[in-house]
Structure formats: C-alpha cells, structure tokens
C-alpha cells in the first residue's frame, strides 16, 4: 500500500542527527522505560495471535499517515500490536479502553516460557524456501520494477516502480510478504538484488557515482 511508511525520496524531514548532532551511544538501547516492554509484548503476542512478521509490518504501515508520522517508533509498534490483538479477537477494544481484562481469554497456544522464548529468538524464522520454479531472471539482466499500486502489503518501494535496473544476484526463493501479510499463504518466489543508478531514480540532480539496490521478488519485476 502507498502508506506513510514508504519514505524513500521524501523531503522535509530535516537532519538525520537531531539534538546535538551526535548519534546515541551504542549502549543506549531504549529511550523510555516503557519501550523495552513494547518490544517484548509485540514479539510475544505473535504466538497467541498467530500472525507473521509481514502481518505485523502491515499493521504498522496501515496506521493513518498523520498518525504514523506523529508517533515515535515504539508508539507505532504499540498501536499496531493493539490493533492486531483486537482484529484477531484476542482483546476487546473495550478492554484496551478500560486498561484491564474484562473477560477470560480466547483459546490460544500455551505462552512461551523464558527458555522457549530464548530458543525462538536464537532460531528466528527463516524465510528461505525451495525454489518453486526456475528463476526468470539472472545476474546482468536488465529489468524494470513494475508499475503497481497494491492496496495491500508490498515490499516494492514507490521510488523504484517503473524504473530500470540490473539484476546483481539471485537470493533464492523466499516467502512473499504480499501474500503472507494477508494470511494467503507463503507463495514463495525467487528474490533478486536489483541495482539502479542514482540518475535513473532521481534524474539529473542525483548525486554522482551513486547506485541504490533493493531486494525484489520475481513478481515485482519484468524484463526491460
């Protein structure tokens, strides 16, 4: 979807380094006492909720643009996790408003204990899958990112749509986020790293000697 999250090439957000012009020190991991809990609740809620990383991302980017751009990072996570819990019927909107549980929980898998949570973090959830078909493209091929504006989730940024690039490498088949975000199965496709010149994306004002690459699923691309 063409949401506020799709920021590549947008202007007006000012300097990257704000107050003081220095990045935060490496050992500063959070900026408010509640932020670690939002991280943990968001990761842990995916088990009773049964949603994928793609559905989580889609919940974040589905926030109305004025809201998305006014919230901090973990506020976006919090709002999206609340929305997912309500949409999946695990928590009532009335309970969020009341700030407490008003009825017993819906049936859900047993929650992970500490050891199981550690194991899940250590393993992750790889998205590589067996190749469903021979790859359509190979390194060196000229390709165009399709001009598409899906209403649902996609990982094809607007700033490359319709632009021509060169396939640099094949990355194997991966779960297609556009499908899994909506509960429509993994639909794995070949993933490619595609390189665009700055001039192709930004025209004559592009910075010189700059290239930009995205990782694009096969259905995002056509021969150029």
């Amino acid at each position: 979807m063409n949401g506020a999250h799709d920021l590549g090439g947008a202007m007006g957000f000012g300097p990257v380094l704000g107050d003081g012009g220095e990045p935060e020190p490496e050992d500063v991991r959070f900026h408010a006492g509640w932020e670690p809990l939002v991280l943990a609740l968001t990761l842990a809620a995916a088990r009773p909720g049964g949603w994928s990383i793609d559905e989580s991302r889609h919940a974040r980017e589905s926030l109305p643009p004025p809201l998305y751009l006014s919230l901090t990072y973990y506020e976006i996570w919090l709002a999206a996790t609340e929305n997912l819990l309500v949409a999946h019927g695990l928590v009532g909107a009335d309970e969020l408003a009341a700030g407490r549980s008003l009825r017993s929980g819906a049936p859900a898998p047993e929650p992970l204990d500490a050891a199981a949570a550690a194991e899940v973090l250590a393993t992750g959830a790889p998205t590589g899958r067996p190749e469903p078909a021979p790859p359509r493209f190979g390194p060196g091929d000229r390709v165009r990112a399709r001009v598409v504006h899906p209403r649902g989730h996609t990982r094809l940024p607007r700033y490359v749509r319709g632009r021509c690039g060169v396939v640099e490498s094949r990355r194997g088949a991966h779960v297609l986020p556009d499908s899994r975000a909506h509960g429509n199965g993994e639909a794995p496709e070949q993933l490619y790293t595609v390189v665009f010149t700055g001039a192709e994306l930004w025209g004559p004002d592009a910075e010189p000697t700059t290239t930009i690459s995205v990782d694009a699923w096969e259905s995002y691309l056509e021969h150029a």
């Binding site: 991280l39 009773p48 695990l90 407490r100 929650p111 204990d113 050891a115």
Partner: peptide, 17 residues
Amino acid sequence: ILVEKGYVDPAALDEII
C-alpha cells in the same frame, strides 16, 4: 491484560528484554 488472559508469560517478556 495479556498476562491475565494467559497469552504471555512475564518470564518470557523479561527474557526478550
């Protein structure tokens, strides 16, 4: 809410953090 409903284990939250 999530703990009371039995959806998450507080020990798992601590582990993630």
